[in-house]
């Protein structure tokens, strides 16, 4: 047990470059595997959290652009959503990496300043960018569907109260759209969280042996020749965190629906497959 505490001390933050520099070489203990894979999971959490956060705002803008009557706004939004929803994330990762490394390494001169570009090919930025754009496209489609399905009565009521333009959107349309979209959006969040495992295969290289959960899992699987330990550990971590995610989104859902009768009771999560 004490040995395991030492391992945790050495490796719990290994994926961030804190702690022991060399990875374990032989005689892998279960404790080492759980600690290092858990350490790699920090990256999966980082990718999921930031992609969802940034993607959420981008998705709202895109959904609004897609409902716009102005073709200059609508067409680009439609194309963006089509390209990112119509192609595999895996391929998007490859293309993004190959495209980002073509940027001039010395930086792009802009208005006398030089924009540095080399950080774009690092996984923390490049892979995050792809995940943001990807989830933005899927979420935008969900929000767009919700905006189109707003009850007519609510819009008429808003008109009757003299609300218009931005105020009408912010006070009436947006909250209702979120309420309608939330179950599907929960689903998208789970998909995205699971999709962070793809970063390992994405072409973005692992730097200083600091990788995500799958990086360490495959390290152990390759070294111990036994995939029946490392991968189930990853699976276990993901089940726990998915349950946590569902709980968090359930709290938000209850808040969104708090004015409706019966919403205070526990919301039963119904998985649906809208991606």
């Amino acid at each position: 047990m004490n040995e395991c505490l030492v391992t945790i001390q050495e490796y719990a933050l290994r994926s961030l470059g804190i702690g022991e520099r060399m990875l374990p070489r032989g005689d892998f203990t279960l404790c080492q595997q759980i600690t290092l894979i858990g350490s790699g999971l920090l990256w999966n959490l980082y990718f999921a959290a930031f992609a969802l956060l940034i993607g959420f705002f981008l998705a709202n803008a895109l959904a609004l652009a897609k409902t716009s009557r102005n073709p200059w706004l609508r067409k680009p939004a439609e194309w963006f959503i089509f390209v990112f929803r119509g192609s595999p994330l895996f391929i998007q990762f490859f293309i993004a990496y190959e495209a980002l490394v073509q940027l001039p390494r010395t930086g792009i001169p802009l208005l006398g300043l030089t924009l540095p570009t080399d950080w774009m090919t690092k996984a923390w930025a490049g892979a995050l960018l792809v995940l943001v754009l990807n989830t933005a496209a899927y979420s935008a489609e969900i929000f767009y569907g919700a905006l189109r399905n707003l009850p007519k009565g609510e819009l008429e009521a808003a008109d009757a109260y003299g609300l218009s333009g931005w105020t009408r959107y912010r006070r009436i349309m947006w909250p209702t759209a979120m309420r309608l979209a939330w179950p599907a959006y929960t689903n998208e969040a789970i998909f995205l969280f699971h999709a962070t495992t793809l970063v390992f295969f994405s072409g973005f290289p692992a730097l200083r042996q600091q990788g995500d959960a799958l990086y360490y899992a495959s390290y152990f699987a390759d070294k111990t020749f036994n995939p029946f330990v490392a991968y189930p550990i990853v699976a276990g971590f993901f089940i726990l965190l998915t349950l946590l995610l569902i709980t968090l989104f359930g709290v938000v859902n209850r808040r969104l629906n708090r004015h409706l009768p019966g919403a205070t009771s526990k919301v039963r999560y119904r998985p649906n497959l809208l991606r």
Partner: peptide, 15 residues
């Protein structure tokens, strides 16, 4: 990894 350099790993040699 042992020289203390920042190792950047790729799955194939060409990469």
């Amino acid at each position: 990894a042992e020289t203390g350099a920042s190792l950047v790993e790729f799955p194939t040699g060409e990469e």
